[in-house]
Design a protein around this nucleic acid. Structure first.
Lengths: 345, 345
DNA sequence: TCCTCATCTGACACCGGTGTCATAATGTTG
DNA sequence: CAACATTATGACACCGGTGTCAGATGAGGA
């Protein structure tokens, strides 16, 4: 079995390899008969262009990387699956780049990644989506990038998010409408912009329903199960104990649930619990967690889609055909399960 | 900022680009002074070779792909993280390729992957590790590959596994020693070779302790939470009800736990539950699951390590310097949590 | 001293595509 | 029908490295 190159195709079709290249890239100025001949040759020889050679000639790698640092495995795989979908559709490959670094070390690490992989672009996911230095660095290096779940909108890069503030508002409002007044809140990791968003939604719901905000009911977490367990320890021993807990993600909520169960508190009767993200664990535990579902795959897919568009257009020397700042916001959806109910009293 | 190519380095160091190339690749026949000059140029110009050009010239992509189809997100991320570690260390990039296809469609899909990505090699993870047709296909195409958690050892490819049979044996034995005699078992997905292994371990433990195997206590699952819930439904309504359930993975075990709790059965007093894999959920639920921990990252890391070795040596025309079939088995470890105890009786 | 052999080095083709430009073929206009 | 614009095509250099091979250099032996 011989290797089929553009030269084989060219001689088989009786044209020059440049003409074959034209057909490959849908360039204009190819007559219909010639195009047909070439396409026929493609079919009959079962030709696939070599992406490496292509990449060399056009200084492209057809690779984009997805940068993340998230404790939730399910979130990561959902990100990946959305990104992959968009990549495959456009003939790109996806590189995954988990990264725990911060500060200068992060920039160095990314610089090295760019150097060695010759990426065409980068997808930033939380907490990197709103990492000011990183964004500035990439812009300066003129590396195309798109951001997932970012909040700040200070530039011309693409950003796809879901409405965390609104989601948090709705779930808090649900608790309020069930009759809860003392609703504890566990914050997420301070590096993630979602943390502030969710907190804002919580406070807006309280305010809107005339419930006073109580600082004593708010704990600092970091999205990890462990931090949820620590916060639960504090919250569940408050006196008076709140009748509901809203944790900024499902892992922390699950930790609260476990702690409550260990203390022989009945959920939701003794204490209602709500989470955020609709992670698998939310329905794997008993009682199932009331939570907010975000379209993570879709967010990432859209982000990558726009990233690729940006890459491809930057390719035509059309020099900075400035697109207006693009921010897309998708809907988050409230999912009610068994962990929430009216307070007992 | 100019682009630094091998030509820049060559003229800066006052040598030919071929000599620079020699230094890059640690080829022999470069005098020490020359080598020093070139290395100095590398430093001062901050040169990084272009992997794409390299790939074109050597017909290599420095990319390997990880093939998987697994319902457990945490398993997937662990696989990835082990694979990434090995890749980075050797200057390779990792492509992830989730794939749900089977039969001819699978082979077509892989063929296309090979065509379009020009991979250097493939890591097969369950359930593909023991997929006979796929393995044969890859061997025929002479695509280097390594297998993770495979059982069959019928060829010369590398395979890294952990001892599932032994793990299942130990956990079953634990239940037996606690006093359980009626121990239900939930099988995994039939495509995964681990399924049979774990079942074998279960039976061996029963046999070794003189407990009769009861077919009525065995349910077919497929590793998904949902299948665990279905099996639990059946098992928990058996009469007489078994005093323990050993599920082939933690998701199914979690489903049993949830079902038992909903039925107001106390775990572990009314029914003991054991899982397998030590997935995060095993410690996120209450009571925590007794389970078996496998070194998934390490397994994948080793597999990729050997794969890269194989790729690099196939590169020197040393033509099939046959290495003996290599199978590495790592230890699985029993982890006791609260979900197992002696039967109440 | 001359020849041989091993070591070092560079010229040049090549990997498989794409960009530039010149030229041939065709169409349009006055 | 001449003069020019437009479309179609191929020759050739180029992307940034590596492989081949021939030539230069220096050490060791006759």
């Amino acid at each position: 079995m011989k290797k089929i190159t553009i030269n084989s195709v060219a001689s088989y079709a009786g044209v020059s390899k440049k003409t074959v290249s034209r057909v490959l890239n849908n360039e204009p100025n190819v007559s219909d008969v010639t195009r047909e001949k070439v396409l026929k040759a493609f079919k009959e020889l079962d030709y696939t262009p070599n992406p490496i050679a292509r990449g060399l000639a056009r200084n492209r790698s057809f690779i984009i990387a997805c940068l993340y640092d998230n404790p939730s495995k399910s979130y990561i795989t959902r990100l990946q699956s959305g990104a992959l979908a968009a990549c495959h559709q456009h003939g790109f490959n996806l590189l995954i780049h988990p990264c725990e670094l911060r500060g200068q070390a992060l920039l160095d690490n990314i610089e090295q990644l760019l150097q060695t992989s010759r990426l065409d672009g980068l997808v930033l996911t939380p907490p990197f989506s709103d990492h000011g230095e990183l964004v500035a660095f990439l812009r300066q290096k003129k590396v195309p990038f798109a951001r997932v779940a970012s909040v700040k909108l200070d530039d011309d890069s693409v950003s796809v998010r879901s409405n965390d503030e609104q989601g948090a508002f709705e779930i808090t409002e649900l608790l309020i409408k069930l009759g809860h007044k003392d609703i504890a809140f566990i914050k997420g990791h301070p590096d993630h912009s979602a943390t502030e968003q969710r907190f804002n939604g919580y406070r807006r719901a309280l305010a809107q329903h005339g419930i006073e905000y109580q600082e004593r009911l708010v704990e600092e977490g970091n999205f990890s199960y462990h931090s949820g367990a620590d916060s639960a320890e504090t919250i569940l021993h408050l006196n008076p104990r709140p009748t509901a807990v809203f944790a900024s993600n499902d892992y922390m909520a699950a930790a609260v649930l476990k702690a409550a169960t260990q203390m022989n508190l009945k959920v939701p009767d003794d204490i209602a619990i709500a989470g955020f993200d609709n992670a698998p664990i939310a329905r794997h535990i008993w009682p199932g967690l009331t939570t907010i579902a975000q379209p993570v795959e879709e967010m990432t897919r859209l982000a990558v889609e726009h990233l690729i568009e940006q890459i491809n257009q930057g390719d035509n020397g059309d020099e900075e055909q400035q697109k207006e700042p693009l921010q897309i916001t998708l809907e988050a959806k409230l999912i009610c399960r068994e962990s929430t109910a009216a307070p007992k009293s």
